[in-house]
Design a protein around this nucleic acid. Structure first.
Length: 271
DNA sequence: ACTTCGACCTGTTGGC
DNA sequence: TGCCAACAGGTCGAAG
């Protein structure tokens, strides 16, 4: 469910309720996520104050003096701030309780998400160490993308969805950014000129930034930490619109599968 | 070093 | 209405 805008929306939503709060208890109902929740979590985080709530790519980082809780939401994960008297549902795997009457609840039906307790610097964790730059940072631009693309035959869509190239671009925003940039999703990454990469980098930044501004994209069930939907769905130009008219030229949008992911594009506007 | 594909899970949707 | 296959916002790790 979450790409970078949804994770950032979640971060902004939970931060005021989590930052500078003391963890009074942790309830683990299901340890078997993408990776099992390690035994060290309860001992390491209970009674600690969470000083920071950061994001690296699609990972959320909750930092205390004793270590950092690294959270990934996978495909179907979410974090909510709820009252302590809210009964836990079937997929409510973890509660982190704070002073007062609120708790942070991790829910994830498919269990592709993870909670990792890391006592070293979180950015040195094997899953984070090799990540590409943040798309909204100055380090990410057309020159960078072009340099990384040299010699690569993979489709451009798979290339920009590779978190070792750039973090945070998932299936929705990859489709949207390629439409905005006028690039066909199956084009080999290594056969795209620098000028087009400059445009693509701008489009990726724009689509992500605009999605963050309106609270992300709610397709079916994404909501922020307070249970409210995001409003970027109405701005989608290709994702979920296969067979509908292209907003630029009016021709019917095509759908195909690329790397097992649904891919929608305009065969006239994207080359 | 790069590309492709299976795997991990549950819930929803659409066709018959 | 029921059943079953296909698909869903991610991404790791094995195999080629």
């Amino acid at each position: 469910m979450p790409e970078l805008p949804e994770v950032e929306t979640t971060r902004r939503g939970i931060a005021p309720h989590v930052r500078n709060k003391r963890v009074t208890a942790i309830v683990l109902r299901q340890r078997q996520l993408r990776w099992p929740i390690s035994d060290g979590l309860e001992a390491g985080l209970t009674n600690q104050i969470i000083h920071r709530v950061d994001r690296r790519g699609k990972y959320l980082l909750l930092s205390a003096d004793t270590g950092t809780l690294i959270i990934h939401l996978g495909m179907s994960g979410s974090l909510r701030i709820v009252n302590t008297d809210q009964l836990a549902g079937k997929h409510d795997h973890v509660d982190i309780e704070f002073d007062g009457s609120k708790l942070l609840r991790f829910t994830d039906p498919r269990r592709f998400g993870c909670l990792l307790w890391q006592t070293e610097s979180p950015l040195s964790h094997p899953l984070l160490r090799e990540l590409g730059p943040e798309p909204l940072s100055a380090a990410f631009d057309g020159l960078y993308l072009h340099r990384r693309s040299l010699g690569r035959s993979a489709p451009i869509k798979a290339f920009i969805m590779d978190s070792h190239v750039v973090v945070g671009v998932g299936n929705i925003y990859a489709n949207e950014a390629l439409f905005m940039a006028g690039i066909a999703p199956h084009r080999a990454a290594g056969r795209i000129a620098l000028a087009r990469y400059v445009r693509l980098a701008e489009c990726i930044k724009e689509v992500l930034a605009r999605a963050i501004e309106v609270g992300g994209t709610t397709l079916r069930d994404f909501t922020n930490s307070q249970g409210e939907p995001g409003y970027f769905k109405q701005s989608l130009r290709v994702y979920g619109r296969a067979g509908e008219p292209c907003k630029q030229c009016g021709e019917s949008l095509r759908e195909t599968r690329l790397g097992q992911r649904s891919t929608v594009y305009c065969r006239y506007c994207q080359r």
